[in-house]
Design a protein around this nucleic acid. Structure first.
Lengths: 130, 130, 130, 130
DNA sequence: TTTT
DNA sequence: TTTT
């Protein structure tokens, strides 16, 4: 009924860009998200979370994000089941991004992307009736 | 750069439905959101938060929500400034809902709304290329 | 660096309550969270998401939640790796709840739990210095 | 019943640090959070949102954040009413931060803060019973 | 101006 | 392994 997740972390690798049979862009990457508390042994712990982005955003991600860059993702958690090569049912978890924000400073001297991408929320309040 | 809020609470009154000059539906209502901790004097405390919803959702809200009903709102926090009648600058805070979910059980015997409304997130994963 | 998720859905079964070797309560359950958009074939789709809760909350969940009840969970997404019986590395995904709210109306005639449980946020503002 | 907000933006000024009568640290600052869509006239729009942080975090914020720095805030929306000098009831809105993350790169050559601060979530899963 |  |  409601499913909303926000993550901030760093890309473990460059994003991968593909296209569906009907030509829709999809980018995937993994975010390393450090936990706030350390393990019992005092090591830092990290969740590695797979992200999927669609369409224009997928292309922006592929163009402007790369390994090690800091990013924020706002989306929903999705769990897909599939059967592996041995016919075993497996589950895969991923976050379907609604918006991705680039948080690493633009490379100085770079051509400079706009500093955000994402689906627009609905409406202007320019002429509210109240 | 990123602005995301999720609230669950009860409507303090029936929602109000209006239309912009160009015919776009807008509904407004207030959610009473109880805080988890009580005040120093042991009283329960509550935040009263104004919500704005647009378009089709505005009409659904007007049709299916009413005073006392439980609802979840997912949106963004917005602060608008305006000048009051004395020419003083004031600020008003409201949450612009992206989705509103109805959490009170449908009235038994009622004709029964669908149990949710809201903007759709972007994409199907029916034919992922991986 | 930041990892925050909010879910609303229904329990697929009664929660399970266990204790760690050192006596800390842990409850687990699965939330069925309907997606907003239907599949290409027009079926409703659902994510089944595993939830873990600790301590006092675990016991409240075990006492007051049961199969089919509506609940909201606020927490963080965690991915643990483990090796299955064939020595294969597997991942399991779960949401570690910080708070769980009970959204189904209390059974009429029931003894009535308090209608929420959860970790408290930090501070009162009773004597702010401004 | 549930109230959760996540913001990313830049500090409009250096944070202010104060202490309650009983010696508890409180820091306040304002985050400039750009909206994703531009106004009808094509200008970028921004929400200026007041943030409050308590205790150890307040001191960290005062030490490591300053005007222009990028930060993420995770907390709850709070609305307090007060009476102004003319005896008029006014409302003020602020976000009570549970965690604040520093997103600007540490100044090269600086002494280097830890790169996050915040309340810890509850439990380790080092000895889960399952 | 406030809800169960 | 799944809920209304």
């Amino acid at each position: 009924m409601l499913n909303r997740i926000v993550l901030i972390g760093r890309l473990t690798k460059d994003p991968e860009l593909r296209y569906t049979p009907n030509g829709v862009a999809v980018a995937t990457f993994t975010l390393a998200v450090d936990r706030m508390r350390k393990s019992a042994q005092g090591e830092r712990e990290t969740d590695f979370i797979n992200i999927v982005v669609w369409q224009k955003q997928a292309e922006n991600v592929a163009n402007y994000l790369s390994k090690g860059k800091l990013a924020a993702v706002d989306g929903r958690l999705q769990i897909r089941s599939y059967d592996d090569k041995d016919g075993q049912r497996r589950w895969m978890t991923e976050v379907v991004a609604e918006t991705v924000r680039f948080l690493s400073p633009k490379d100085s001297g770079g051509s400079g992307p706009t500093d955000f991408i994402g689906a627009e929320m609905e409406h202007s309040d320019d002429d509210l009736p109240f």
